[in-house]
């Protein structure tokens, strides 16, 4: 019934989608790593960035990719401020629980404001190259999807290099591994946690711009993203960046393949099935270590 040709096509689409998932899941992992915060508002910021890209394009007619120059620094600062002004005010004992509620509240506010300012109408960026595509080994790939994937890969690579090569990255990884020990060797963990938050939100800015290129956006879209992303970070193991990236790729490809047989809506359930299966078999996730155990 399904030709190998179609399977290959969805495999390619799955990889392209998985890249975006991986970038966003990496952001979520960063927040969790530095602050033990599950950031429900991550996907709301994603949609916000997508709206900003659309709005920028709509107003100026310039390619929405250029809006990155504004949104990435803006989101970075927003992330730092959010950690400074809001998350840090919560009492450490109930931080994990209360931060979920707080970020959930932020997500509601963003969704509400988007609906209020831009109305609930579905929006889409129309570009000269929106419709164009090319063939690779018989699979048809839309240019915008490839650009989105490229953005995700570049951003992930940048994040990886930053974490592995720079002093800030070293401090970040130390804070993720053991906050108290990091503080003992002289790392200003509070400041580093703020930067971690900023970097996380910056991934949402990149992801949002990529999303705006090839999807229709509307204010409540973020609920369709947060579920899969949450599932990805639980399957990958909370706090493990490579785990999140691998789980994102695997689940993205799986979703894309299942779409052939089951249609788009049912294929989305693969994330939740994976989530519940993971909890039954390995509650700490497949790649997470000690960190995920108690969360």
């Amino acid at each position: 019934m399904t030709s190998p040709h179609l399977v290959f096509q969805s495999l390619v689409l799955g990889v392209l989608l998985g890249g975006l998932y991986a970038l966003l899941a990496a952001g979520l992992t960063l927040y969790f790593g530095v602050m033990r915060v599950v950031m429900i508002a991550h996907s709301a910021f994603l949609i916000l960035a997508a709206y900003l890209a659309w709005w920028f394009h709509d107003r100026t007619g310039i390619d929405p990719l250029l809006s990155l120059a504004v949104t990435v620094p803006l989101f970075f600062v927003a992330g730092v401020l959010m950690q400074r002004l809001l998350i840090r005010r919560l009492s450490p004992v109930t931080l994990t629980m209360m931060s979920v509620l707080l970020t959930f509240a932020i997500a509601l506010v963003i969704e509400g404001l988007l609906g209020y300012v831009f109305s609930g109408t579905q929006r889409r960026v129309q570009l000269g190259y929106s419709g164009s595509s090319f063939e690779v080994l018989g699979a048809r790939v839309a240019v915008v999807k490839l650009i989105a994937f490229g953005l995700a890969v570049v951003a992930l690579l940048g994040l990886y290099l930053l974490l592995k090569r720079s002093r800030l990255g070293q401090a970040l990884r130390a804070t993720i591994q053991h906050r108290d020990a990091a503080a003992l060797v002289g790392i200003d963990t509070d400041r580093v946690a703020g930067y971690g938050f900023g970097l996380g939100l910056a991934t949402a800015a990149v992801g949002g711009t990529a999303l705006a290129l090839d999807s229709t956006i509307y204010p409540s879209l973020h609920w369709h993203w947060i579920g899969p992303l949450m599932a990805i970070i639980v399957v990958g193991g909370l706090g493990s960046v490579p785990g999140a990236a691998i789980a994102a790729m695997a689940l993205g490809i799986l979703q894309s393949l299942l779409q052939l047989e089951m249609g788009t809506t049912w294929a989305q359930t693969v994330f939740y099935v994976a989530l519940f299966a993971t909890l039954m078999v390995r509650p700490q996730g497949f790649f997470g270590g000690r960190l995920a155990q108690r969360f």
Binding site: F32, M230, A231, T265, Q268, T269, L275, F276
Partner: peptide, 19 residues
């Protein structure tokens, strides 16, 4: 699971049932 993971699961449950 506890804490944050429990919240994630509870949200996932609503989303899956909605689907």
């Amino acid at each position: 699971v506890r804490g944050a993971s429990f919240v994630i699961v509870s949200i996932a449950l609503v989303l899956i049932l909605l689907l």
